[in-house]
């Protein structure tokens, strides 16, 4: 079923071997500085061409999490696609990370500005706290609350919404997932994006992302936002295919092409979707 859907979207259900990727913690070290230190340990790195501060691990004789540079918080092991949302947001002031744990994007955003991180799962939030400590982040406040209970206004919000995931993330993803689950996620995502927009100041920026390739969790959620709220899509300068404007018999807003979807076999990343909205 998913294979036929992906074909209709111009994609493919092709599992690719991903390069492990790390993000440099520029609060502590420069990319060149980290590269020199890891190369001294015979780790072979290659710059990720579409990211500012990331390297692919081409080879390493040991598990990177056991090396001093990891324990010192000089880098974070973070898949390449998941580094794009913070980069394309490039916030100039306080940002709300709405579904923050385990903290990859939170700690990345903290390199730009102060961050309010919220998550409603205690075990996941404790992983975030551990990452904040390891990376030496000193400008983040974390709350164990449901994002929907936040009432403050923001100029920047990142909503990396809970989603059904994609076939690159787990071996039995196809067996575990079905359209009912996708639809359930879609309803939650619409609720979350609606609340996120209500918290945005005028001209505020919302970056919405998922690691789902299902239009119900991606373009249809954005279409819901365009139909019901005073927001517009902004062009994103990054890799990936343009967002779908016509799918499963539905005509979507032409500006949907400004969104980006990452097909693993094309971007050599996990499946991913990203949109940048501005409140009018």
């Amino acid at each position: 079923m998913f294979k036929a859907r992906y074909k209709e979207m111009g994609g493919d259900l092709k599992v690719v071997k991903l390069n492990r990727c790390i993000r440099v913690n520029t609060k502590k070290i420069s990319p060149d500085g980290l590269k020199a230190r890891l190369e001294k340990r015979r780790v072979v790195l290659e710059k990720v061409p579409f990211l500012k501060n990331a390297f692919y691990i081409k080879s390493s004789k040991f598990n990177l999490v056991s090396c001093p540079e990891y324990l010192l918080g000089l880098f974070y092991i973070q898949e390449a696609a998941t580094q794009v949302p913070a980069e394309i947001m490039s916030p100039k002031g306080l940002v709300l990370d709405a579904c923050a744990a385990p903290g990859g994007k939170t700690t990345q955003l903290a390199e730009y500005c102060d961050v309010i991180a919220v998550d409603n799962k205690a075990d996941r939030l404790s992983i975030l706290e551990n990452n904040l400590e390891r990376l030496g982040v000193d400008n983040c406040i974390a709350y164990l609350i449901d994002f929907r209970s936040v009432q403050n206004k923001f100029n920047y919000i990142l909503l990396d919404a809970p989603c059904s995931g994609n076939f690159m993330l787990e071996n039995n993803w196809l067996r575990k997932n079905n359209l009912k689950r996708v639809e359930e996620r879609s309803e939650l995502q619409k609720e979350l994006i609606g609340h996120a927009i209500s918290l945005l100041n005028k001209d505020g920026v919302l970056v919405y992302s998922t690691c789902s390739l299902e239009p119900e969790e991606d373009e249809f959620v954005i279409q819901f936002a365009l139909d019901n709220f005073d927001v517009k899509l902004e062009k994103i300068n990054c890799i990936g295919d343009d967002g779908l404007t016509n799918i499963f018999g539905k005509n979507l807003d032409p500006s949907m092409k400004f969104c980006k979807r990452f097909w693993p076999h094309k971007t050599n990343t996990i499946g991913f979707f990203i949109a940048r909205l501005r409140k009018c």
């Binding site: 309010i116 030496g136 000193d138 406040i141 709350y143 164990l144």
Partner: peptide
């Protein structure tokens, strides 16, 4: 930047 609820984590631990 604080919200009106009790925080779990505040800046540098």
């Amino acid at each position: 930047n604080r919200l009106d609820v009790k925080e779990k984590f505040f800046g540098l631990l």
